[in-house]
């Protein structure tokens, strides 16, 4: 069960998308989210499909790999499609007791599926082409304006990269403790709510204790290396917004403008 979780979906490569600055990619992904909710009509979705397809090609991530990201959402997509198909009122084509198939239903269902699919495809490319470390770095730089008003952005980014580092370790640890407790007769998967909540305790206590130990060791290691927070700390790799980032942003804005004008026309 725990093995199915894929967190570091990073797909290493050296494409234009991989080389883009993480902060720019985060901003562009946010704009892309907004764009998706603005698109309407066949022409708009057609252009959007071409745009997404081109970006996937550009990223050199195999399409099969990208489509795999849709799998966890399959149930959600089917649920949405069925809801929209049969529950939208309009011109009835086919009816069976309370189930009505309407033109409007088909129309909405298709658009909703497209909307979710494009949403996931576009945003998952961000994690495919950016390593988690570059991503947290991007988030930190994206949040620097808030640091000026006193928000602890450096500490947050630091904690986030530590958390990312420890997630695989702790997943393994959880699995190990679960198996150890199951060998002692613990039951995690049956019983009512209260029983299940109680069953969590022999899992959680050892997990927390081992995590505290790791945190202590890490704190000592960091103190030994004189870590003292954000101010005056220099970086190993200094990242700057370059030419390629500006060009990419302009291309994205151009595409978005084309799609939105097609929207108004169609």
């Amino acid at each position: 069960m725990l093995k199915d979780i894929t967190l570091g979906q990073h797909f290493p490569g050296n494409s234009v998308l991989h080389r883009l600055d993480a902060m720019i990619k985060i901003i562009l992904s946010m704009l892309y989210l907004v764009l998706i909710f603005l698109v309407k009509g066949f022409v708009g979705y057609g252009l959007l499909a071409i745009f997404v397809f081109c970006i996937i090609l550009l990223s050199t991530v195999p399409i099969k790999f990208v489509l795999k990201g849709l799998k966890p959402l399959l149930i959600f997509i089917i649920f949405t499609a069925i809801l929209n198909l049969f529950m939208t009122s309009g011109t009835v084509i086919w009816q069976w007791s309370f189930l009505k198939l309407t033109y409007e239903g088909i129309y909405f269902a298709v658009f909703m599926i497209l909307r979710i699919v494009f949403l996931v495809l576009g945003t998952s490319l961000l994690t495919y082409t950016t390593s988690p470390i570059a991503l947290t770095d991007g988030i930190e730089r994206f949040l620097t304006p808030f640091a000026k008003i006193g928000a602890p952005t450096h500490e947050l980014a630091m904690m986030m990269s530590i958390a990312l580092r420890f997630i695989p370790t702790l997943l393994e640890e959880t699995d190990k403790i679960m198996k150890a407790q199951m060998a002692r007769g613990a039951d995690f998967e049956s019983g009512n709510l209260i029983k299940r909540a109680r069953a969590l305790i022999p899992l959680l206590v050892p997990l927390f204790i081992s995590a505290f130990r790791r945190a202590d060791e890490l704190a000592i290691a960091m103190e030994c290396r004189c870590y003292q927070g954000g101010k005056n700390r220099t970086r190993l790799n200094v990242v700057k917004v370059g030419k390629i980032d500006i060009i990419a942003s302009l291309v994205f804005l151009l595409c978005a403008a084309v799609i939105l004008t097609a929207n108004l026309a169609g």
């Binding site: 958390a163 420890f166 995590a211 790791r214 704190a219």
Partner: peptide, 22 residues
């Protein structure tokens, strides 16, 4: 409790939290 220890404990607890969220 040093600030570094607070940072590491919070980070590790966040990692547990993310694991439990799945």
């Amino acid at each position: 409790k040093s600030k570094i220890r607070k940072i590491t404990i919070t980070a590790v607890l966040s990692a547990i939290s993310a694991v439990l969220m799945f």
